[in-house]
Design a protein around this nucleic acid. Structure first.
Length: 542
RNA sequence: GCCCACAUAGCUCAGCAGGAUAGAGCGACUGCCUCCUAAGCAGUAGGCCAGAGGUUCGAAUCCUCUUGUGGGCACCA
């Protein structure tokens, strides 16, 4: 059981025993040492109901509390009405063997044991290479999946795409036009065609493999393009350390009849009607301010239809948790999907949509508007090639997904040496180096150690932070905001670097040396576990 | 016009289930390697947490309005 939970329970019981009715007992880490290690503002929240002064309430509760003297050294009130806990050094010291024993399972939980989760992300149609914009989606999705796995979920990483729409048709036409250009014939380049160089390369490959006798409108152009681009996308993802378990093609839901069934059911509920030659979904009946087109007058369904069928399919596959990673441009559309599912009587409570804001790219201080079609994008591969996957992953995860972040390309490449991710990795590398060094000095890694020797401020501060890891992971599991992990690791690394500058690990005092080696071993475990969740390498040396 | 998100140091951003003195990196300036990696540590400068109201014992954090930015409001996805 975690420290805060223990204190929270004891505080709640004490308050009840004193005749108060506490609602939510919150324990926070104290910022100032003179307020102990942990504090609660419980008395302040009870003032109104109790009609007593907060200090009086604090005294009363403290009088009732059952002190666990294995953990707590002191409990005392402070103005205007806080209850402060001073934690014993022995408690923090006991974390060392606890962490070492848990090893790579430290920070894990079984919250998701025997549960399944589906994380759908990237889901870019294969019309071109992945861009930096997709990068944010990819990294968030993969990290969220890692977080869920850390809590025991069985996670499916899923990529949803559509190779039958307008975009893909234009893609095929673009390749076709380049093919005929290569043959010296006038290609009819589509008006909204894809102008990137990769289109020409695909055309060249087709020419090399299939000769020059292909006819216009041969379906080969689109098929080859899709295949080539998908291969490129998968390679880009692998370069970032991401692998999908499943690719789902929108076409499936037309072919297996799920879309027809879905339309029939909505019709039976009178949520579908015809107007102006199109078929509409009566969203206004479900509380929205306008109805949506489901089937265009051309007979083509809009993306909402297969999207909804796809989500129903995911629900029917029985996942305990369904997560979608969407860009801000979907903010307005996914509620319609949920609405339709609910109208069909399906429970959508276990669907979590994570929206991330767009990345604004800056080059030479100027904004670049990205468009795959116009080929003015910066590819994910280029970025990864320049600054490494670790840096890219960290950059996208260290910011909240709700922040509209500016990505200055010059700065990113320029400062890659000073990137904050190295700060974390450096801590890990330093520890590894000390351990290696200790081995060369003949220090027995299995030696018995006495953690009561770890008494300096920087040692205890380091332990205190290391011991917060499981708690942080619990929070992140709730919020699904990966940057909590990044922030935490920054703090842990800072505590380590501080410790490093103040305490020598390898000393003449063998007992102290053993204790400190155990300490840094435990810190190394936490760093490695955290970095693993972020999908970032934990180097032995730098 | 309507809807969603955002606004914190010169720049990029943390902090936000309300808590005690608002943080980091980059940039500027000062110290620290006879000692396990200086990709580090210590310190200086830099802030009316966009503005105005409100709720509260207490607001960067919650609510309202204003201003500014991004995204949406398609028979595009």
């Amino acid at each position: 059981m975690k420290l805060k939970e223990i204190l929270q329970r004891q505080l709640t019981e004490a308050a009840e025993e004193a005749g108060f009715t506490p609602h939510l007992v919150v324990i926070t880490s104290s910022k100032d040492e003179k307020h102990g290690d942990l504090s609660s503002s419980l008395p302040l929240s009870l003032v109104k109901a109790a009609k007593k002064s907060p200090m009086e309430i604090a005294e009363t509760i403290i009088g009732k509390i059952q002190i666990d003297d294995q953990i707590v050294a002191d409990i005392f009130p402070s103005s205007p009405g806080f209850i402060n806990f001073k934690i014993k050094a022995s408690y923090y010291q006991s974390l060392v063997p606890e962490i070492i024993k848990a090893g790579n399972t430290y920070g894990q939980s079984d919250k998701g044991k025997d549960k399944t989760a589906n994380v759908e992300f990237v889901s870019a149609n294969p019309t071109g290479p992945l861009t930096i914009g997709h990068g944010r989606n990819a990294v968030i999705g993969d990290t969220v999946a890692n977080i869920l796995e850390n809590h025991g979920y069985n996670v499916i990483r899923e990529y949803y795409f559509n190779d039958a729409g307008r975009q893909m048709r234009i893609l095929g036409q673009s390749v076709e036009a380049r093919y005929f250009e290569l043959l010296g014939k006038e290609g009819e380049f589509p008006e909204d065609g894809y102008v990137g160089n990769y289109i020409k390369e695909i055309a060249q490959t087709i020419l090399n493999e299939h000769g020059k006798n292909l006819q216009k409108s041969d379906s080969l152009f689109k098929e080859k393009a899709e295949k080539a681009i998908f291969a490129d996308i998968e390679k880009s993802l692998v370069n970032l350390g991401i692998q999908f378990d499943q690719f789902t093609n929108e076409k499936t839901f037309y072919e297996n009849g799920e879309i027809d069934r879905f339309m029939e059911e909505l019709k039976a509920k009178n949520l579908i009607y015809e107007k102006d030659g199109a078929t509409w979904f009566r969203t206004t009946d479900l509380g929205k301010d306008q109805d949506r087109v489901y089937i265009k007058s051309t007979g083509e369904p809009t993306y909402r239809v297969p999207d909804t069928a796809y989500h129903r399919n995911k629900i029917n596959r029985g996942f305990d948790l369904i997560i979608d990673i969407f860009g801000a441009d979907h903010a307005d559309t996914y509620p319609d999907v949920l609405l339709a599912l609910e109208a069909l009587g399906l429970n959508t409570d276990h669907i979590r949509v994570l929206l991330y804001q767009f990345v604004t790219l800056l080059r030479n201080g100027e904004k670049i508007k990205m468009s795959t079609r116009k080929a003015n994008f910066v590819t994910l591969d280029e970025l990864v090639g320049e600054v490494s996957a670790d840096v890219v992953r960290y950059f996208f995860i260290m910011r909240g997904m709700n922040s509209h972040l500016n990505f200055d390309l010059d700065l990113a490449t320029d400062q890659s040496e000073k990137n904050p991710v190295f700060y974390l990795q450096y801590a890990h590398a330093r520890i590894s180096n000390i351990i290696k060094h200790s081995e060369s000095l003949g220090v027995d890694p299995q030696a018995h150690y006495d953690t009561s020797l770890l008494t300096s401020d920087s040692e205890l501060a380091l332990l205190k932070t290391a011991g917060q890891f499981p708690e942080i992971m619990d929070t992140v599991n709730e919020t699904l905001e990966p940057q909590g992990v990044a922030n935490y690791l920054q703090e842990l690394a800072a505590k380590f670097h501080k410790f490093y500058s103040e305490c020598r690990v390898l000393t003449d005092d063998n007992t102290l040396t053993s204790a400190r080696i155990a300490l840094i071993n435990s810190v190394k475990i936490v760093l490695a576990n955290g970095l693993k969740i972020l999908g970032i390498s934990a180097p032995e040396r730098m």
